[in-house]
Design a protein around this nucleic acid. Structure first.
Lengths: 338, 338
DNA sequence: TGCGGCGCAGAAAACGTGTTCCGTCTTTTC
DNA sequence: GAAAAGACGGAACACGTTTTCTGCGCCGCA
């Protein structure tokens, strides 16, 4: 009989390991954490005992003594959607490698819920917080105490001193226009989402600036739907039948535009080149033809957010201020024939 | 000058509250938790002190003594995708109301990663675990010790004694076929995903059984894409030009079928009725026409999973075995003209 | 008046780990 | 051969809360 005085279900504690190895709990702790002055033989003996018992240190106890919880909170303002999910995955990926775990909070655009979640996270002594959302408008900063690092991803903080990661919307829109200009198109249009959406406005401004004198008309605002894309294509063809390139504010709009053009007998990309935005595979790849589009690199952003938080926790304070993450133009058949 | 002997940043502890109220920490705990024998006046005094200091109990300390962590782990086999996200949201919603928090783990179909995540979760003394995924095939159960309740959602466990929640795939497929039969259609086809996918097979069998003698041909297997839907529509029209209803294994396939039919000059639903599966709004609503489809009720499933776990934690052991959750037929213009 | 019971609150132990301090034993050096 | 230095490991405490045990004072009853 060895040390089975614990109920079979309960996980072994460090005292069990220490007993099996014939040392004190303190010594066992030092052996397992590589701290203190111990003979190599002792260290190994404890290590084997731990392995034999399948010992895993209880992170509650560990957290209590270390003051850390090896946990970060992830607050999203919308329910996890198209934009926050990849960010979340990227963060989970990075943090998981750092032995951290992500606590999920969905505040559903409700400041009260957000406040509640924040209190919950702080009560759990999270080592850091990532805030994300669906919109690109800067949002009011969360009221976290100074010693808890916070990183805003996708949705930046209104306070320029906070660490925020944002997508280079303008750069993406410019690249899209430049791409069609490079292809020789000279009669360009831009179709995008609601004029009160920050993302739509920023993309519009950049696209218009890049297209310079080659715009056939003012950018068209609508909603983010395929339906609006079809409508806009119809409208454009009627007013400007000679349009030869359309850059769009989203993949959904771009797909609608493609369908609208095809319905009207125009060929994509031969007659008109179409560029989307977001690189949402479900839309971009299913489109006819598949969309050239601007990839946001959200997962990379999530990873970066995780890294910033890990750095901050490790004592290297996160570089404050807004960091702009690059986009990438993905070229498919909607601009370049096969 | 009150009790500000703590660094301003650090959150107040219960000893601070106790000191301010002029009682011992133990008494303060009883007052705040409503336990023990205390004068109402004392209770109130402590409560006010806690409020004044903005005290929130540290859940690490609480967890250490109570043996609970007020935390559940959520393991998904795929990266969080179309099916696991709604489940996750439903669970987060229910559990959040119960003062619990969700720990996120993404095992990416890798058993080794899953094993690692499981150990991490157990080390954190989670009160329960939810396992989910993308496929509907029963999966090997996770090796959790007996005292940790586990609920499988969407992806059931191979062990029939485990608590699993599954979608009523067969019921949904039957309802879809019954719907088109009720509309008077008598020349039915079924187009679905790969023949080695459990979901495709189950839906196929149920659809075929319900359609009885009204099938124009054997169900067609392909992949889950819109492309395959378009291809299948073309194929069907060539071999069975008189087909008047097509039920599909997914919304993506159904949308492809609609496009294929329209390309061939058939009207939906006048000539051919089309039914999808999943009720994935991005696809179903953007389709021309919008799809009649089978809603899976995944968020309800997530909520149910959360409830089962809360029950199990509270001592009411989760009813073991597989529970089938109902689907709901959502009727739109792809079967019933406006 | 003495004793038991009850209402109340404090002291102490428990949860599991990490860390600091200190004592002991070995080794080295003069 | 003795003293100092260094290697090693044990005991105690810290973390923050809950819970059990204990003690005190007051009241009522005999």
């Amino acid at each position: 009989m060895t040390e089975t005085n614990v109920p079979a279900g309960a996980p072994p504690r460090i005292v069990d390991v220490a007993a099996l190895a014939g040392v004190s709990p303190g010594t066992a702790s030092k052996a397992l954490n590589g701290t203190g002055q111990l003979r190599a033989e002792t260290r190994e003996r404890v290590r084997r005992a731990a392995e034999q018992l399948g010992f895993t240190p209880d992170s509650l106890g560990r957290g209590l003594s270390s003051g850390r919880s090896y946990t970060v909170g992830l607050i999203t303002t919308d329910s996890f959607g198209r934009f926050s999910i990849p960010v979340m995955l990227g963060a989970e990926n990075t943090l998981g490698a750092g032995e951290m775990v992500v606590l999920l909070c969905d505040s559903r655009d409700d400041p009260l819920r957000e406040q509640h979640h924040l209190r919950t996270l702080l009560a759990r002594r999270v080592d850091g917080i990532i805030v994300t959302g669906r919109r690109t408008e800067p949002r009011p900063p969360i009221a976290a105490p100074g010693h808890v690092p916070v990183v805003y991803a996708f949705t930046p903080s209104q306070d320029p001193a906070d660490a925020s990661l944002v997508v280079d919307q303008a750069g993406g829109a410019s690249a899209a226009v430049r791409h069609v200009l490079d292809l020789g198109r000279r009669r360009v249009a831009h179709v995008t989402g609601p004029s009160d959406h920050h993302a739509a406005v920023v993309r519009r401004e950049a696209a218009a600036a890049e297209a310079a004198g080659h715009l056939v008309c003012d950018p068209l605002h609508g909603d983010w739907s395929e339906r609006w894309g079809r409508l806009a294509a119809d409208l454009l063809l009627r007013r400007h039948p000679d349009v030869d390139a359309i850059t769009c504010g989203s993949d959904q709009i771009a797909r609608g535009v493609c369908d609208g053009l095809r319905d009207a007998g125009r060929r994509v990309p031969d007659d008109v080149a179409v560029v989307g935005f977001d690189d949402w595979d479900v839309i971009a790849l299913a489109s006819r033809p598949p969309l050239t589009t601007v990839a946001l690199g959200l997962e990379a952003m999530g990873r970066r957010a995780g890294e910033l938080l890990l750095d901050a926790v490790a004592g290297r304070p996160a570089s404050p201020g807004t960091t702009t993450m690059p986009t990438r133009l993905v070229v498919r058949e909607s601009t370049v024939g096969v």
